[in-house]
Design a protein around this nucleic acid. Structure first.
Lengths: 135, 135
DNA sequence: AGAAAACCGAGTGAATTAATCGGGATTTAA
DNA sequence: TTAAATCCCGATTAATTCACTCGGTTTTCT
């Protein structure tokens, strides 16, 4: 039950952007430096976050990244799903996956993973960046 | 946020044992066949489960495995922890890990992972094998 | 023009995962 | 007493994923 470095770094970086919300674009290198993350790796993380509409980029000199929405409108679940795909303790109960595995409906254990998936989703969707920065 | 095949297979196999509780020892091959799992792989899974005191083995012909306790005394959390180690969405908040990472207590995101860890723990410890087999 | 920054896909080494393998020990039944 | 069934256990391997790295392009500011 681990989230990957992408997810963890993504949440950390987004938290940094939330702290600097309204301070103008922050360069990726600056965020990487503060958080002790390779900026090359962070680049890979910001690309999908931008495509998902969670951050906005400003190109060129004096450019950088800004949250696309207010911190209280960005849920941790949004970040995690963008970087790690649908929340699913096991593949066969992935969010948004309508079809079930061949073992279903006989599968007695399916209910465990569905309940776990839903609980994890609820927790991550209940926390916004605003919550995180207000400690 | 995935659990591994070991954890998934382990829970499935333990559920099978729960269904056959009081039916005498069930051979591992039989469980593997029913669940469509390689019996060689399942062997690897049963070893730690036995060492953790969740199942009991009977050696020799007519041998097999039995739950060491009644189904309502075995929590899914017990199985998952045995096979996958302490529950922890990120390493620095692993269950039973008293020391924090060097970023703490400044780390704003730590609370997210602690809350997630506790929630996952609660869900998995709230479900017993008895719950699973009574659908 | 030059510097600073975002953009983008491809590649890579290490680690982890998911098995497979080979053989040994123990018990039961014929 | 021998054969068959079964658990026991460590070693090895194949596949996959992870955590980065790299080389280069485009955009914008000064």
């Amino acid at each position: 039950m681990k989230i990957t470095a992408k997810g963890e770094y993504g949440v950390r970086a987004m938290t940094t952007l939330a702290l600097e919300y309204r301070a103008g674009p922050i360069p990726l290198r600056e965020i990487a430096r503060r958080e002790g993350i390779s900026h090359r790796f962070l680049e890979q993380i910001f690309l999908p976050l931008r495509r998902a509409g969670l951050i906005t980029s400003v190109r060129g000199a004096k450019g950088g990244y800004v949250l696309a929405k207010a911190p209280d409108e960005i849920k941790i679940g949004d970040i995690v799903r963008t970087l790690e795909g649908p929340i699913a303790p096991v593949e066969c109960v992935a969010e948004g996956n309508e079809e079930s595995c061949k073992r279903s409906p006989a599968c007695l254990t399916r209910g465990i993973w569905e309940r776990l998936r839903d609980t994890v989703s609820e927790v991550l969707d209940d926390i916004t960046l605003a919550d995180v920065i207000t400690n």
